[in-house]
């Protein structure tokens, strides 16, 4: 995936391609956005913002657009997102059912929501998008070694999360 440096808006023929892309592929990106934001409305907002940014580079994207847009999305989430949604707080909703597994999964989802943004992005890219360390590093603009350490810290945090320890003991 490379992007050349022209600043032109998409050609007319590329516009319908962009529209098709939004129609056909944006649902998959929304799922990643939701895993990053933990909020459906914020995920939709993040997705639309990222797609709007991608529109200006659309005719210059070579290869599949998804990696490029995913990169925009993760970086938007990590930076501008912090400013816009600094009030984000994980909810403390009770599990919907009393099933042990379901409660554990709920607790883990809540614990994931407490991770710092960068760590949460690493977890989502590695475990949901199945990206390699090198690919994750490319998306986040950090060194592969940093991906490894961020993931390690994230796992340690999750293991020490009080709700997960309590859940495991229950």
């Amino acid at each position: 995936m490379t992007v050349t440096t022209s600043a032109a808006a998409p050609e007319q023929s590329a516009v319908s391609d962009f529209d098709d892309y939004v129609r056909f592929r944006s649902a998959a990106l929304l799922r990643t956005a939701y895993l990053l934001t933990h909020d459906a409305a914020l995920a939709e907002d993040l997705l639309q913002t990222s797609l709007a940014k991608a529109w200006f580079a659309w005719s210059r994207i070579e290869g599949a657009p998804t990696p490029y847009i995913r990169k925009i999305m993760v970086n938007t989430y990590s930076s501008w997102w912090r400013r816009k949604w600094s009030g984000e707080v994980p909810t403390e909703e009770l599990p919907e059912t009393g099933a042990h597994d379901s409660a554990m999964n709920h607790d883990l989802w809540q614990a994931l929501g407490k991770l710092p943004r960068k760590q949460r992005a690493v977890v989502v890219l590695r475990y949901y998008e199945d990206l390699s360390e090198a690919e994750t590093a490319d998306v986040l603009g950090i060194a592969p070694g940093t991906v490894k350490s961020q993931l390690s810290k994230a796992i340690s945090k999750l293991r020490l999360d009080p709700s997960l320890i309590e859940g495991a003991m229950a």
């Binding site: 944006s26 929304l30 939709e44 999964n105 989802w109 994931l112 949901y128 999750l158």
Partner: peptide, 23 residues
Amino acid sequence: NQIKDVLEHQAASVSGVDIEQRM
């Protein structure tokens, strides 16, 4: 594996807005 399961389960639960609204 548990993280993967939770992420996939949660990802599958989100539907978003109508495509035309998104556009």
